[in-house]
Computed example of a mutant assay.
Amino acid sequence: MDGPHGLRVTAEDFGLEGPRGWAFRGVRLDAEPGSLIAIEGPSGSGRTCLLLALTGRMKATEGTAAVGPARLPKQLAAVRRTSALAHVPGVTDLDPALTVGEHLRERALLQRRFGGSLRALLRPRGERAGEAASRIDAALAAAGLDPDTLPKGPRTAVRDLERVETLRLSLALALIGRPRLLGVDDTDLKLSDAERSGVWALLTSLTESGTTVVAVCSEAPEGAVVVSTAPAATAGTADEETPGTVPPAAPAAPAKPSEDGVGTADMTTDADADKPVADKDADADADTATTPAADSDSDSDSDSDSGNRDRKTADALA
């Protein structure tokens, strides 16, 4: 594959805070172009959030990072134009009903429509088809996936693929755009030792062709630039009495999309109240409503006692 030149990735005290607290915090990184960067940590430690932040899909709330000449968190769009994602649940999910060939043709068409230049769109149809076929063949070769070896060839549905084949297909789809930075999630999830070794060898070969690869894993391979998201590495220092912990964040309003289409969290809360303001007002109105009633009962009792005393006085005079 005619690989592009990779991008250098750096980060300094990089962090992202969401409605439930810090997804990751204090990340420091310095990886040369063409490096294999392994985001290592247990599930739920913010690995995917860090992957999405480094590829311009999530906006960090603390620190800075740089992907090539683009700076984060300000230049998200610039990072997205030079990066691609593969095998990220909820982001790059494959349609199980579509075939391998349909996925590849669809991605090549989208790349030509949205990733190419206007001049490329005006070329003759034969040239455009040849360019698309060339991109697909190069991406499949780089991902180590040969459709002819599948049960039904290119007409094999995604639902019939093995897990490692699904991963390779997702990689091939991402590589059609010839990214300079490739992000891969769940690299070693539910794979055998042999399959895991094969995937790491594949990602290493991509870096040797010039692409910088960021891969999420539970255990990093030898030779990778390791970024740990384990709790001890992402812990904050706000609670001085209990080092290594981050105090829980106050309940937040729902997340709102920012102007550039990247998700952000609105952390504005009513920290002084446990109940909505409407409930507090209703309780206050209820308390106010019961006070005059109590006073009215008291006045009524007083008038009744006064009337009894007047009748007794009249009877005595009679």
Rank of each mutant, 00 (worst) to 15 (best):
L76P: 00
S45F: 00
R47D: 02
L85P: 00
P73R: 05
L54S: 09
R71N: 03
L50R: 09
T82R: 15
R81F: 00
R80G: 09
A84C: 02
G56H: 11
R57V: 09
L54T: 04
R81A: 15
P69W: 04
S45R: 08
T61A: 07
L51D: 03
Q75L: 05
S43D: 14
G44T: 01
G46R: 06
P73G: 04
P69Q: 05
A66Q: 15
A77C: 03
S83C: 11
R47W: 03
T48K: 09
A78P: 01
Q75W: 04
G63S: 07
T55C: 14
A53P: 06
T61P: 03
V67D: 08
L76W: 02
K59R: 15
P73D: 02
L52E: 15
G46C: 10
A66H: 12
A84D: 03
T82E: 15
A53N: 10
S45W: 00
H87Y: 11
Q75S: 13
S45V: 00
T48V: 02
V67A: 13
L72N: 11
E62V: 10
G68L: 02
T48S: 15
H87N: 15
G44A: 04
L52T: 09
T64Q: 14
A65D: 05
L50H: 11
R47P: 09
T48N: 10
H87R: 12
L52D: 14
A70M: 12
A65N: 09
C49T: 11
R57W: 15
M58S: 14
A77I: 07
G44D: 08
R71H: 13
L54Y: 09
T82G: 11
L52F: 05
K59C: 12
R47G: 09
K74H: 14
G56V: 06
R81L: 14
A60S: 14
R47H: 07
L76F: 00
G46Y: 03
G46H: 02
R71F: 01
G46I: 01
C49I: 00
A70G: 01
L72D: 05
A78N: 11
G44H: 04
G68Y: 03
A84E: 02
L76S: 13
V67E: 06
R57K: 13
P69A: 10
T61Q: 12
A78C: 05
L54V: 04
L51N: 03
T64I: 07
A77Q: 13
